[in-house]
Write a protein that binds this DNA or RNA. Structure first.
Lengths: 153, 153
DNA sequence: TATTGTTATACTCTATAACTATA
DNA sequence: TATAGTTATAGAGTATAACAATA
């Protein structure tokens, strides 16, 4: 005898469902949950994956550069790299030209973990295509990119 | 002499920018920031706004029903309602039929706060339409709704 | 037995300030 | 002076377990 739906993902919120911010938050939670559920290896979370992937494609990148690329704070990267090092996935190497900064590299275990995470990511993305269609997904990415321009105004 | 962009919102992440989850997270942060920046009254955060709005459109709703509608945990709603009560925006009224539950209502100050928050929300949504176009926004809402079906699989 | 609201607690993510060692 | 990495800390947001009152 509930007057409301009890399943949060099917709730009728009339007003709120027409708000881009609200729809965006709900969709992001669903997509992240699907991403996480599909990951097998030691790198299960979106934040960890993005760090691992950028180190993989930019070996030798410094922590500050990595933070700038991902839009995260230097202070918050430290624990992530600490964890990667303790898992044997990445290394901090001294820079030859600037003794303040660390150059980041994946170990071979890190490269394998990245490969595995990328496969899971590809399957995750395929589930999205199944829902939206390839064209729908492309449109979505375009619309989302436009939304980021809100930051500059 | 940076090799990467230093502004997080313009960073070139090659691989990551093609990931729906990543694009979704970045867009959501930008949209929430714009929403928050535009709010004036005591209810500045998206989570607070959604609670206030649902009480406003469903006066007499119980805390459990509200949680089910928004997909949040009962334990986490308590502090929000406490805050609304201390700000004089909402009231907990005893239910006539079930002495376990509280029926939630906005005070007149709460209704004014909701009205003000809705105006700011409308201006926020208008900025989004300016970026995406009315049709782009409609498409976006449809695509986001589809993504939520990931939860059921 | 099950549900409502509540407390306590913990974990993640994010943000700031301040320190050190370098530049 | 300014920057890179680090520490400490604090605030949101979210999650679970357990309890008292009530169904």
């Amino acid at each position: 005898m509930k007057t409301k739906e009890r399943n949060s993902s099917t709730a009728q919120l009339d007003e709120l469902d027409q708000h881009v911010g609200y729809a965006l938050r709900r969709a992001q939670l669903a997509v992240f949950a699907d991403f996480i559920a599909g990951q097998r290896g030691p790198v299960a979370r979106p934040g960890q994956f993005s760090v691992l992937a950028v180190i993989g494609t930019h070996p030798g990148i410094t922590q500050s550069q990595l933070c700038a690329a991902l839009g995260i704070k230097r202070a918050n990267l430290v624990a992530v790299i600490d964890q990667f090092e303790s898992l044997g996935l990445a290394r901090r190497l001294p820079s030859a030209t600037d003794r303040r900064s660390n150059r980041l590299q994946l170990t071979s275990a890190g490269q394998r973990a990245l490969q595995s995470a990328r496969s899971a990511q590809a399957r995750h993305e395929a589930r999205i295509v199944k829902l939206l269609g390839a064209e729908g997904r492309r449109e979505l990415l375009e619309l989302l990119a436009k939304l980021c321009e809100l930051k500059r105004s």
